[in-house]
């Protein structure tokens, strides 16, 4: 088996550094969100300003429920009636475009900013 030479190691370092740089730039570029939108079964149920701390109980599809916490400009799920608790593990969201999804209860929490996010308008 052959060994890596100096150019290989240089190339690998450069590629890794480039990937990390892109990751950092992408993370920095996300705009801070202002608003958490709560969707149940695709329908917008409520909107809350992220700057006001609060606790919200969300009545999900088919009798399920989730408890959403808004604190220090970020939103996260504290409790969920579903068995897998994936939405809780999705952690805190605060940047525009981020989302927490709870599939069993058909609940989606989306962070938006005041400029209206990615779309000018949505027709249904």
């Amino acid at each position: 088996m052959r060994k890596l030479n100096r150019n290989d190691i240089l190339l690998i370092t450069v590629i890794t550094a480039a990937a990390l740089l892109i990751a950092v730039l992408l993370l920095m570029s996300g705009r801070k969100g202002t608003c958490a939108e709560i969707y149940v079964d695709g329908i917008l149920k409520a909107e809350y300003i992220l700057t006001d701390d609060r606790e919200v109980e969300i009545k999900g599809y088919n009798g399920g429920s989730n408890i959403l916490i808004i604190k220090d400009g970020a939103a996260y799920m504290r409790e969920a009636s579903c068995p897998d608790k994936l939405c809780i593990h999705q952690g805190k969201i605060s940047r525009s475009g981020q989302a927490i999804v709870c599939l069993p209860n058909r609940v989606v929490i989306k962070i938006n900013d005041s400029e209206g996010g990615d779309y000018d308008a949505i027709t249904r």
Partner: peptide
Amino acid sequence: LKNSGGFTIYGVSAAGGV
């Protein structure tokens, strides 16, 4: 990369994967 002569098969392959 291979024709440049400066890299072994590891570097060539890593760049290929990326």
